[in-house]
Design a protein around this nucleic acid. Structure first.
Lengths: 201, 201
DNA sequence: GGAACATCTGAATGATGGTTCACTTCTTTG
DNA sequence: CAAAGAAGTGAACCATCATTCAGATGTTCC
């Protein structure tokens, strides 16, 4: 018998792949998709450019994995809150707040996920995740409408509007003083979001 | 004396430049910024690739001009309505409706202006125009608040939210039936926008 | 230790697409 | 018309990266 991957070796490879994705995510958060060349990402992970192709069939595939992991975390967190306990309007408020706080804490990553120019494969992934955000928002809004806490409305449109509104406010710098005061920004944003859905003030 | 540009010649050159920008705009609306190569644009305008550089110092410069002209038209139209007559909430509604109708009529261009991946120079221009949309919205909202037609709020945040909300709803396909019915989509969107600003229903 | 095989390396390769430039074509003016 | 100068052409040039691959280094197992 010749050579067989030992379990430790398999773990090592998985860890290497993981490490690559983590570092690539950091690079993307710092410099954006366009500047995150294979060489830059490999350097950050401490491997040669060619080694990237041991783990991913192409740069696109790596980029998609980076996007998916990061975006999935946000969907999970948002879903946790939006599908949790409490009345729908309150869940919506908390969801927006949690989402906003996380985005402000890692602005570079938030920008990469929500708005930064990216190759088509990442663009498609972004579209898919936007749909998931919309779906989560739409479900809460439908609940709120059913419980007569929110006025009748097309929940899909409101959900899309919320997705766009939240992204815009968080990603592009405001000239108002709220830009320098995270608490005010979050408060302002959740207020807009609630009005958007028609929640009573 | 040797050669001097005659007025007719100057006009011809200006017309050629203009024609190039118009055709480039069409190409961008059809295939997006990424696919709008110098060759493709030159072909569309009926000139050689090299001739593009008679009118613009670089591809970026042409792209910026294309963006500016198209975006300026939208700012003008929106400003016309938002700064016109009537009470602020009604102007807001009409502004959203006009903006939405125009975007739906030329979806390719709207996507290029609002969201399509583009080179950095165009991205910067987009940012600048987003600020102008925000400024227009913020002014109407401030008026509405001052006249007690709208509840107290941070107008900059609401304006940013409106910009993002409108863009998202118009640019990304909805799965709801409103997607196939422009009237419903516009009605739904203006309803969300008014709620966003806190206008009484 | 060493045969057999896997992973890792990084310079060479290749595709893409903006830009240049020697040349042609058109305009002006005496 | 002819000389002078501008605009127009498009193939060649060049910069940028993703991708490959021949050789170097590690790992497994007898």
């Amino acid at each position: 018998m010749a050579y067989r991957k030992t379990p430790a070796e398999i773990r090592r490879l998985e860890a290497a792949r993981d490490h690559l994705v983590v570092r690539a995510t950091e690079v993307v958060a710092e410099v954006g998709w366009a500047q995150a060349s294979v060489t830059a990402v490999a350097d950050a992970a401490g491997i040669a450019a060619g080694s990237v192709y041991q783990h991913f069939s192409s740069k696109s595939a790596l980029a998609v994995e980076v996007f998916r992991r990061a975006a999935q975390r946000e969907v999970d967190v948002l879903g946790e809150v939006l599908e949790g306990d409490g009345d729908p309007a309150d869940r919506l408020r908390r969801g927006v707040e949690v989402f906003a706080r996380r985005a402000l804490e890692n602005h570079g990553l938030a920008y990469a996920l929500l708005a930064a120019p990216a190759e088509p494969a990442v663009g498609a992934e972004r579209l898919a995740f936007r749909r998931r955000y919309r779906g989560l928002f739409a479900a809460v809004i439908d609940e709120g409408v059913a419980a007569d806490l929110l006025p009748g409305q097309d929940a899909e449109i409101t959900a899309a509007a919320l997705t766009g509104a939240i992204g815009e406010v968080l990603v592009y710098p405001l000239s108002t003083s709220a830009a320098h005061d995270a608490d005010r920004l979050v408060a302002g944003l959740s207020a807009v979001a609630l009005r958007c859905a028609g929640a009573a003030p």
